[in-house]
Design a protein around this nucleic acid. Sequence first.
DNA 1: TCTGCGCTTGTGATATTATAACATAACCAA
DNA 2: TTGGTTATGTTATAATATCACAAGCGCAGA
Lengths: 120, 120
Amino acid sequence: MRMTPLRRNVLALLVKAGEPVKAYDLLDQMRSEDGSAKPPTVYRSLDFLMEVGLAHKVEALNAYIACAHCHDKGGAELYICGKCGSVDERHGAPEPLNAPTGFETQRSVVEHYGLCAKCH
Amino acid sequence: MRMTPLRRNVLALLVKAGEPVKAYDLLDQMRSEDGSAKPPTVYRSLDFLMEVGLAHKVEALNAYIACAHCHDKGGAELYICGKCGSVDERHGAPEPLNAPTGFETQRSVVEHYGLCAKCH
DNA sequence: TCTGCGCTTGTGATATTATAACATAACCAA
DNA sequence: TTGGTTATGTTATAATATCACAAGCGCAGA
């Protein structure tokens, strides 16, 4: 598992976008430079980036973002503005108090959709 | 917007399943009775059920469940066991303390994946 | 240096999930 | 009863994601 030019390129595209990007939009961008990119190319790179904590999937949008807290593998809480598309990533929410007793969480998906401070 | 036999049937299938169900699995079940069901049939029914708060989408699974707290339209926190597939639905988590200032949440997706008390 | 192994990428096909667009039918109020 | 609204039927296609197998690359050890 190592960083490669291909993977670095995908990460760079995510960082440059600064907001959630669809896999096929990434693919289009890669194709405009490379021509030979195909879906597995981008999905594999995204899988790698998520595995090492450099990217997240925004589940309810089927989109991907660069992690704003690089080197942090844990789940993030995402605050996603429906108007301007910005995403504010937070970490470290406490364990919910109303969790079922005995439930052992391995991965959490927390996405809040609404309006950011600038957009309302 | 009213409950119809078709929509009631979709809800019944969700309730009977008792766990997250894929849209196309619902479709297969409907077809085995009806024969004429097509994707828009099931997706439209699911949209209706979610709109009135009788069903939720499990975003990270692309699956749907009956709401365990019927008549509650707000977001739910789902605790999903990766081993047995059970889903425990909770409501009423407090607003996160570390939210960005000024962010106005309209909809929240909260899904915790792990092992339920019985499965570990 | 060579060789073999594991990881990475290329490539074509296909699976899965979801929606668009338009036609028909059912419901219900005026 | 008629006209508008809501619901369903139907065909096609869009959008998202994975499989399977081949080829390349990089490096540890012979």
